[in-house]
Design a protein around this nucleic acid. Sequence first.
DNA 1: CGTCTTTGACCCGCGC
DNA 2: GCGCGGGTCAAAGACG
Length: 552
Amino acid sequence: MEFGSERSDSDHGGGEVKDEKRSDETAVIIKETPMSNSKGTIPEDGPSAITNRKEEGDELEKAKAKMSEVREENQRLKMCLSRVMNDYRTLQMQIHNITQQETQNSFDKENNNLQEIIKESELVSLSLGNFPSNPRNDEKAKKQVKEKEYEDLSLGLDYKFETSKSASTSEHLLKPSPENSSEVPKEEEGGETWKPSKDEVSQENPAKKTRVCVRARCDTPTLNDGCQWRKYGQKISKGNPCPRAYYRCTVAPSCPVRKQNNLHYSITCYIFQVQRCAQDMSILITTYEGTHNHSLPLSATAMASTTSAAASMLLTGSSTSHYSSMPPSSATTTTSSDLHGLNLHFPNDGSKPKQLYLSHPALSISSSSQSHPTVTLDLTSNIPLSSSSSAPNFGGRLFTSSNYNPITRPLLYPSSTSLNFTSSESNALSWSNGFLSYNAQPYSNNNNRNILSNINLGRQPMENMYHSYIQRNNNNVSFPQQEAQHSMPDTIAAATKFIIADPSFQSSLAAALTSIIGTGNTQGNQSGGEDSGKNKKWGDLFPSSSSRDNNN
DNA sequence: CGTCTTTGACCCGCGC
DNA sequence: GCGCGGGTCAAAGACG
């Protein structure tokens, strides 16, 4: 929508002016015609003609006066319009700032909650290989047990929050510990690609790192998770005709997209195994392991956060499981525990559980032969986690801010980009708002709404929220899929209502805008900066997921 | 010319 | 100790 051009001005506020001009010109022509026809002779109807001329002159004066009035009004309208536009921009900036602050505050709060709980549970080491000192370990027996637990459960997938280059107060809050801060390489200043140094590798216990395995139907060689990977090896694995490829993260600090005050969390993995399922070649098995020590583009944080959350679930589940929670009778075959809504079943053969079965078919936690605790997210099933009434809370509500669980949902999800991991196939897996979602219908390339029709495994897409709101408030309004049928002011008003009514939507919207404006330049266009998002149309704000297929 | 992929060699842990 | 398999390294080639 363009404001300020002459054409639009006259179209909106100056329509009357145009009409007046026409009538004025017509009047002049009428006035001149008798003169040209008279050829210097006195008109036959002498006195009446003079009277007519006088009247025409009066009319001309009136028209001129009216025209000047209209011009003044036009000027007033223009000024009014510019005022409105200025107010609009100011409000937009204020909303952006407020939502950003809210997001950051809740982020800080939740991070603090997480760290408190982590401290209390003494389960997660926030540093790679360096376990925080634990005063309770004075008791020898406890110490031995806990050291064993640490060995088993300390993850490469730790949580590390950082603000990019901003020395804000939140940075102190977000720093996990002083010990960790010394371990974070200064790769952002040095501008060097991060590689796991031998020191880091030696600090980690490579045989104990937790892995997150993602099974998904995918035609492409790798999942498009927004991160950049470099292949460093390939092996034929036993029992699988398809080779297993090894990838290393190459996102590193050379990535130019770093907004100040924009929170990044640097979880996710530096090792990336990709393998086709031996039984079903259409299934891609992706295994994540390790931790980034650098910020990630928002587009990459979606997968990162989910894999980390899954690892966290494994971590907390394995360590806080109450084996004695089941009656002795039922404990003869399996042992179950309830993990934040997940029912965990441990094979009870007296040994350390090799596999931990979850009551939802899409999730399982297992321990590989090489002591790799592994959590598997099976996304090949068409059963959406959130749709099962008997399903655990993981899929539908685990990540929602309204159902925040500081243990199982350790992170905020500022990312609102929508990543399509697959080709345009039905049942495609996509990443939207930081959550996995299934598209139950084939994509259509020209429809920006295709991401909105997904069955979402995680947080409800904001568009769906909007739809439900619209449906609640006005059964006739559907936005924006049928926007051609409805007036724009209605939809804008409804959208405004919705944004005002729902703070979480504000956060999501702000995150989405930040993501689009900020990370829209991540791939390809890096020169746009923040301003590049200002002129985006509504449809541009929700780009087709297919447009992000080229992330890798 | 720089970056990325390929691929054979090598290392290492585990089981027998 | 030996063999096997998983994982990594690094030189060579491909590619833009």
